[in-house]
């Protein structure tokens, strides 16, 4: 009974950690992810217009190219890359510092499971919040594309959306969500692993931080290709 109660108390601590990570990984990343998505959507629109629009191709084709590009590839990959730097590096630095300053040993010495307390909430928060950020990136990216189209005059918002609707592939958003889910797991799990097993003082923390960001980016690229080959 007493151990069941202790577990409940620990669960409360884990839940609080999970909620904190939801905010730090998800909510706090919304501005930078939105900014990157908006510019990606805008640039893709302008470049598509430059490459495709001719008297033989209707302008609405821009929407048909930009929106699937965002939902199937750009929104997920851009979000993943940004989070590799912003979240992956932070997690590795945080856990690495805790390791070299014996804070992780202190948690274990108290009788708490440090993996459950530090790693599980971060990985779960990544799995939950990266898809949310992906959806945000899709919406903001599309808006950025429409805005760029209107401002440059290559296509009207109506034509853009008409093109996007006519060539909409239902599987596109699901494919993007699957990618975001996998990227969320990869970024947080790899960064937690690298940070948790840091050694070598401040220098070690620096190395872990760089490694976490680089490894996360490389794994995102590999996972992107593997998922495309497997699911398309």
């Amino acid at each position: 009974m007493s151990s069941a109660f202790k577990s409940l108390r620990e669960m409360k601590m884990y839940r609080e950690n999970f909620q904190t990570e939801l905010i730090r990984i998800g909510i706090d990343s919304i501005p930078i992810v939105s900014l990157a998505a908006a510019f990606s959507g805008a640039v893709t629109t302008v470049q598509t217009a430059y490459q495709l629009v001719s008297p033989l191709i209707p302008p609405k084709i821009i929407g048909a190219v930009v929106v699937p590009s965002l939902t199937m590839e750009l929104a997920a990959v851009v979000t993943g890359f940004i989070l590799s730097g912003r979240v992956g590096a932070r997690i590795a630095a945080e856990l690495g510092t805790m390791r070299v300053s014996e804070q992780i040993d202190a948690i274990e010495a108290m009788g708490l499971n440090s993996v459950g307390f530090l790693i599980v909430p971060r990985v779960l928060a990544g799995i939950v919040m990266v898809p949310v950020l992906y959806i945000t990136a899709c919406l903001v990216g599309t808006f950025g594309g429409i805005l760029a189209a209107e401002l440059t005059g290559v296509v009207t918002a109506g034509e853009f959306l008409q093109g996007a609707r006519e060539h909409f592939d239902n599987f596109g958003p699901y494919f993007g969500l699957i990618k975001a889910f996998v990227f969320g797991f990869l970024i947080t799990a790899v960064s937690c692993y690298i940070g948790y097993y840091t050694h070598g003082g401040a220098d070690g923390v620096g190395r872990s931080t760089t490694r976490a960001a680089v490894m996360s980016c490389v794994l995102i690229l590999i996972a992107d290709l593997v998922l495309a080959v497997l699911l398309l």
Partner: peptide
């Protein structure tokens, strides 16, 4: 612990 290991 040697350095205290307080949670920052």
């Amino acid at each position: 612990f040697q350095g205290g290991a307080l949670f920052d």
